[in-house]
């Protein structure tokens, strides 16, 4: 009985992973402040002793949308997205964030896309970029 249960669990696990692997897409996630905050910044950057509302390391907090919006306003530059502090701290070699483990490249790409396309509107920055 035990062996049968273990086999069943293994079969279900392998099937689940296989189905997942076969239905994956490239990177069609929403480039919105809500998604960036809740799916990427909150779990990766807002640990209690880092960029949480409690600690606000360097003045930034990303654990809720309410605190993430004002924090992001100062570190995104829709006119020069790849010069935004939010982007450079995730990609530089020295003092790279998150300090304990880097973000996947696809998360960084999504953040850059959001700065390029939607940050101005999402954060109500009202920045006019020179053409």
């Amino acid at each position: 009985m035990v062996r049968a249960m273990v086999r069943l669990a293994l079969a279900v696990s392998v099937a689940a992973v296989a189905v997942t692997a076969c239905t994956q897409t490239d990177n069609d996630r929403p480039a919105t402040v809500e998604y960036i905050t809740e799916a990427i910044l909150q779990p990766s950057c807002a640990q209690d002793v880092c960029h949480s509302s409690y600690r606000r390391e360097k003045g930034y907090a990303f654990d809720t949308l309410e605190v993430a919006r004002p924090s992001l306003m100062g570190i995104v530059n829709p006119c020069e997205p790849d010069q935004s502090l939010l982007y450079t701290v995730l990609t530089r070699r020295i003092k790279r964030m998150p300090y304990d483990a880097p973000l996947p490249q696809k998360d960084i790409d999504l953040i850059l896309l959001w700065i390029q396309k939607n940050a101005n509107e999402d954060l109500n920055l009202q920045v006019q970029c020179p053409r």
Partner: peptide
């Protein structure tokens, strides 16, 4: 950990 199983290369 796969932060989004619908997107490739987001696992660690």
């Amino acid at each position: 950990f796969d932060e989004n199983v619908q997107i490739t290369q987001l696992h660690r």
